[in-house]
């Protein structure tokens, strides 16, 4: 009886213990706890966004992690990266190391190796890392476009202001012409009388008719279906749509960052969207610039 009990207990303890140890060992093995690690030292002037345990990626694949961060006697940050056995082959003497700070998600250290045949990086060498700041780059990209938009808007404001202003150039010309024609029509006989030449009076009249035609044409050019102002309006509408899109994209950024801090896939898609929107806005602004006269010549020249 006792023997049987002892055997059963022994069997139970052995089997469950083996199961537990095997599970933990498998987990440890999968996490790379048993593989030999190679350490490389990198340097950086700033430790901002660097943390222990941060992933080290090669071609988007995690090959290691940041092991230790410490300052040397010159105040330069030394970063020790740990790369397990088979992955150390991707780190060569010509490899470059960059700290990638994405808009969303945690920072990562990226290894780029162009020539895999070059000798492997010796552990004693200290390589400097470059910093790629995703958010700042995007902001930098948006900034000039926004400035340009601002410029165009000021320009349009000035033109429309000029057209609307009773003392503006266009209105002044139109008013003068009106007065002149009125006067001239009244004093046709007077010209004839003064010059004694009906031809002269006729030519003056023709000139005035021409002025009228030009005015109609100008009007058409400005306000017609294919006129400048509707075109500007169309482009501006387009810009508004693009800006709304940009706004929506930025809303998405906030949403995604709240949902999952390291959803890099979504983030990449979003970044591409922002980039293309910014590029298309820049193109539209260029078009507008072509249509509108430059800042230095705000007056519309009449023929």
């Amino acid at each position: 009886m006792l023997k049987k009990t002892e055997f059963k207990v022994g069997l139970f303890v052995v089997i469950t213990s083996v199961l537990i140890v095997a599970s933990i060992a498998y987990l440890a093995y999968s996490k790379g706890l048993f593989t030999r690690e190679h350490t490389f030292t990198l340097s950086s002037t700033t430790g901002e966004d660097l943390s222990e345990g941060m992933p080290v990626l090669f071609s988007g694949y995690r090959i290691g992690r940041v092991g230790k961060l410490e300052l040397n006697d010159k105040g330069i940050l030394l970063i020790t990266i740990r790369v397990p056995e088979p992955h150390d082959q991707w780190i060569r003497s010509n490899s470059t190391f960059s700290l990638y700070k994405p808009l969303i998600g945690s920072s990562r250290l990226i290894v780029t190796t162009n020539d895999l045949s070059s000798p492997s990086l010796s552990p004693g060498t200290i390589r400097e890392i470059t910093i790629i700041n995703d958010i700042n780059e995007t902001i930098k990209k948006v900034q000039p476009t926004l400035e340009k938009i601002n410029e165009v808007v000021t320009n349009i404001e000035r033109i429309t202001g000029n057209l609307a202003d009773p003392q503006g150039d266009v209105n002044r010309i139109l008013r003068n012409t009106e007065t002149l024609t009125a006067n001239l029509s009244k004093k046709e006989t007077f010209i004839e009388m003064a010059t004694g030449n009906p031809e002269s009076a006729k030519s003056v009249n023709e000139s005035l008719k021409k002025v009228k035609d030009i005015l109609v044409k100008t009007d058409e050019q400005l306000y017609g279906d294919d006129g400048t102002l509707p075109l500007i309006r169309k482009i501006l509408k387009d810009i508004i749509v693009k800006l709304e899109k940009l706004n929506a994209a930025l809303d998405n950024v906030v949403k995604i960052s709240a949902d999952a801090s390291d959803s890099t896939k979504d983030f990449k898609l979003l970044r591409a969207e922002i980039d293309s929107t910014v590029t298309s806005i820049a193109k539209l602004v260029k078009d507008l610039d072509k249509i509108l006269p430059s800042k230095k010549e705000p007056e519309i020249k009449l023929p």
């Binding site: 006792l2 009990t5 002892e6 059963k8 207990v9 139970f12 303890v13």
Partner: peptide, 16 residues
């Protein structure tokens, strides 16, 4: 030790 074996038997093996 004998008590321990018996206890494990009653607590774990019997309930298995």
């Amino acid at each position: 030790k004998m008590v321990l074996v018996n206890q494990i038997y009653f607590t774990s093996v019997q309930i298995l």
